[in-house]
Amino acid sequence: MKFKTKKSNSSLPPVSTASLPDIVFILLFFFMTVTVFKDQNLLVENTIPMANQAEKFAKVGVIEIIIGKPLDNYQANYGTEPVLQLGNKIGGVHDVSAFVLEELSLMPEHLRAKATVNLKIDENVKLGIVNDVKKTLSKINMLKVNYIALKK
């Protein structure tokens, strides 16, 4: 019985895989177009918390500050307490104003007034360092902040 059914199966015409390259190419082009090569690597842990009221924002005139614990291979130098990642460097709260003002000066003039600071903060970070960063930002008059969160 078993043998018979097997035989009848093999008599079916094989599924044509001729269109497989086309499908793969479509996927390939999709990913090629959406790929953005990152100009910075994550140096700190960054698990972003969820918030169901999160909205989408335009990505123009944005300055990004990432806060989290240094990754394992940086812990020898920077310890295990949360630090800031400013561009491609790890820094402390005292580096924030210099970094933000430099980024601001690199921006086109018409965007400067609308500049937003994106705060990408790891969910395990304590509020102390966050409050310090916010205080520094408000001192240099960068009042628009965006707490990055994943939409639920």
Binding site: V24, T35, K56, L143, N146, Y147, A149
Partner: peptide
Amino acid sequence: LIFFLVTTSLESNDGLQRMLPRP
């Protein structure tokens, strides 16, 4: 395809926008 899959980061820019208090 696999190369681009790996390098792609579909970064989201979702968040809660707030104004900080004036200095």
